[in-house]
Amino acid sequence: MDAFYASVEQRDNPELRGKPLAVGGSAARGVVAAASYEARVFGVHSAMPSVTAKRKCPDLIFVPPRFDVYKAVSQQIRAIFAEYTPLIEPLSLDEAYLDVTENLKGMAIATEIAAEIRARIAEVTGLNASAGISYNKFLAKMASDLNKPNGQAVITPKNGPGFVEALPVKKFHGVGPATAERMRKYGIETGLDLKQKSLAFLQEHFGKSGPYFYGIARGIDERLVRPDQIRKSAGAEDTFVEDITDFDLARLELKPLAEKVWRYCEAQGISGKTVTVKIKYSDFTQATRSRTKATPVANAADILDTASALLATVYPFKRAIRLLGVTLSSLTNASVGDDAEQQPQFDLDL
Rank of each mutant, 00 (worst) to 15 (best):
C57V: 04
D228K: 14
I270P: 01
T276W: 13
K273D: 00
V326W: 09
G174I: 11
G43T: 03
K273A: 08
E38F: 11
G187Y: 06
D305S: 11
I121S: 04
M183F: 09
G151E: 08
A82D: 10
Y264H: 15
T292Y: 06
K171Y: 12
T245K: 13
D228C: 03
S50M: 14
A180V: 10
A166T: 11
A131M: 04
I230Y: 04
L21Q: 02
M48Y: 05
D145Q: 09
K197I: 00
V51L: 09
A3Q: 04
G24R: 03
A140I: 08
P316I: 05
A22I: 05
A82Q: 15
A200M: 08
L224V: 15
L192A: 15
V41Q: 13
Q75I: 13
K148G: 08
E242T: 11
E189M: 05
A35N: 07
V241D: 12
K105T: 12
R29W: 07
F213G: 00
K278P: 03
A340E: 01
V297N: 01
A53S: 10
V63E: 05
L139D: 02
I220V: 13
D243T: 13
A39V: 11
T306D: 06
G207K: 06
T85H: 10
Q345I: 13
L139I: 05
N147W: 14
D2S: 04
H173V: 11
P149Q: 12
G325T: 00
G269I: 05
S26C: 05
M142F: 09
K158A: 10
A122D: 07
G126A: 03
D243M: 12
T274Y: 11
V51G: 01
G337A: 13
V275I: 15
L304H: 13
G325I: 08
E242G: 02
A180Q: 07
I188V: 14
Q203M: 13
L249C: 07
R218G: 03
Y5W: 13
L304E: 07
E9I: 10
E123N: 11
T101N: 02
P149D: 01
T85A: 03
V41F: 11
T288N: 14
P149A: 07
Q196Y: 09
L202N: 04
E38G: 12
A3T: 04
A298Y: 14
V44S: 09
V277S: 06
F62L: 09
Y37R: 07
S209L: 12
F62S: 05
F213E: 00
Y97C: 06
M48H: 04
F67D: 01
A153K: 07
G30K: 06
I133Q: 01
F206G: 00
M48Q: 02
V336T: 10
L304C: 05
Q286H: 15
L348Y: 08
G126E: 04
F240V: 06
V32P: 03
A143F: 08
A28D: 09
A234L: 15
G25D: 00
K19C: 02
S46E: 06
Y5R: 00
P177F: 11
A79K: 15
A180C: 07
L350G: 04
A250Q: 09
R289L: 08
L328R: 01
T239H: 08
T156E: 01
Q286E: 10
L167R: 12
Q342W: 14
A28G: 03
K56G: 00
T292E: 00
G219T: 05
K171I: 02
M107G: 01
K197C: 03
T327K: 02
D12T: 02
A334R: 14
S308R: 08
L167Q: 06
